[in-house]
Amino acid sequence: MTRAAQFTAAEAAFVLREPVRVVKKALDSGPVRPVLLRRAGASVRAIGWQDLFYLFAIKELRDELTPKARMAFYEALRQAPLERGREVRFGRFRVAVGDLVEEVETRTASLAELAEKVEFRGDGEPVLRGTDVEVHRIAALVDGGLSADDVLVDYPSLSRENVQVATAYAQAHPKAGRPFPRTTAKRALRGAGLDELDEVLDGAAAE
Rank of each mutant, 00 (worst) to 15 (best):
R121T: 05
T106Q: 15
G124P: 04
A40W: 06
R84I: 15
E102F: 03
F73S: 04
A140S: 12
P126W: 02
E125N: 00
F120E: 10
A148K: 11
V151W: 12
L65V: 01
S157G: 15
G145D: 11
D143S: 06
R129G: 04
F120Q: 02
G91N: 05
P81M: 05
R33N: 12
R45L: 14
V153S: 03
S157V: 15
A140Y: 01
L61S: 00
V153D: 05
V153L: 12
A140N: 00
D123T: 09
D63C: 01
V44F: 03
V151D: 05
S147I: 10
A57G: 07
S43E: 14
R78G: 02
H136W: 06
R107I: 13
G122P: 02
E119M: 01
E60C: 02
V151L: 11
E125R: 10
G85F: 08
V95E: 06
A46L: 07
P67M: 02
E105F: 04
L65H: 03
E119C: 01
G98I: 12
R33S: 14
R38F: 00
E75M: 02
V104C: 09
K117I: 03
V88Y: 12
G41M: 08
E113Y: 12
A46N: 06
R38C: 00
A115Y: 01
S157H: 12
G122A: 15
V153C: 07
L36W: 00
E75Q: 04
E116T: 13
A115W: 04
V95M: 09
D154Y: 15
V95T: 07
D123W: 07
A72Q: 10
E75G: 00
L141I: 08
V97N: 08
A148G: 09
L77Q: 07
R39Q: 06
